[in-house]
Amino acid sequence: MSGGWDTTEEFVKPGQEAHQWKIEKRASGDFLFKGVTVFFAFSILAILALVAMEMYVESLPIIHKFGWWGFVKGSDWDPVNGSFGALPYIWGSVYSSILALLFATPLSVGTALFITEILPHRVGGLVASLVELLAAIPSVIYGLWGILVMVPWLQKTVEPFLIDHFGSLPFFQGAPYGVGMLAAVLILMIMTVPIITSISKEVLLAVPQSQKEAAIALGATRWEMIRMSVLPYGKSGILGAVILGLGRAIGETMAVTMVIGNTPQLSLSLVNPAYTMPSVIANEFAEATSKLHTAALMEIGLILLGVTLIVNILARLLLWSVSRNEKGGIRQ
């Protein structure tokens, strides 16, 4: 029994009295390898904690100066005179994201339903992968299209029309700049639709066939089947998808920065320029000179992080409850 490899001594030839159980070498390999994987796996937790901690520590100066509430409700932003209030940015982020979601949700759910329930399997798959492919287009490219194509169109055609005909409503008061809240809402809508659609599609595909057949067997039309079986079953998953889309919209930086006009003001009007939390960080952080200015931007980042964390945790819990097994092929 001549072993052919370097570790032969571990093998005990039959009839040999003393066995060598050789442990160190093997065990240390396993120990080391497991150690490496443990280190990397826990580094995910460490990263998340680090992100939150860094942001908090860096924004301490402004928290000390204005307090949480003072910063959040202040609407004056004047780095030169050391006055910082985040309200216009928070307002801009919330207003643009919620409006965008308001339009994106019915469109996305309708599309997801059309793909899964109505289109033939093959065509549905094609449309779905088209939508997914477009979800992969980077934000800056949507921004490029937004600022060079959509904004001029809004300025010359859409906004004058809206102001002329609906100018009495608070939503359409102002001058047609092109850039502004409307542009941000539209671009956010275009960008969140693919995300919500593809996750909703996964959720709808997970509806068991038996659920649908039960409705069909009762003589339901296709729409009735969707309303009776598909939507109730997919409800929480679709809600998760929408909330995930909201998280995306709130955190979206480049495209919004390029089309929203970057003017901090509190206004209901869609035609007016506005500003969002990520945008002000993007525009001012690299040039912030005073310590207080940096800290103010950091605290805006911290608020943004807090909001997106809450939104994401909520969305994940909803989506995990649908897929049950944590493997759940649902990603963004």
């Binding site: 709130i250 955190g251 930086t253 980042g301 939104v311």
Partner: peptide, 15 residues
């Protein structure tokens, strides 16, 4: 990890 993937990318820049 799922939550981390939802953190806005500008935040990773700040960190």
């Amino acid at each position: 990890a799922d939550v981390l993937s939802g953190v806005p990318s500008i935040i990773t820049g700040l960190v």
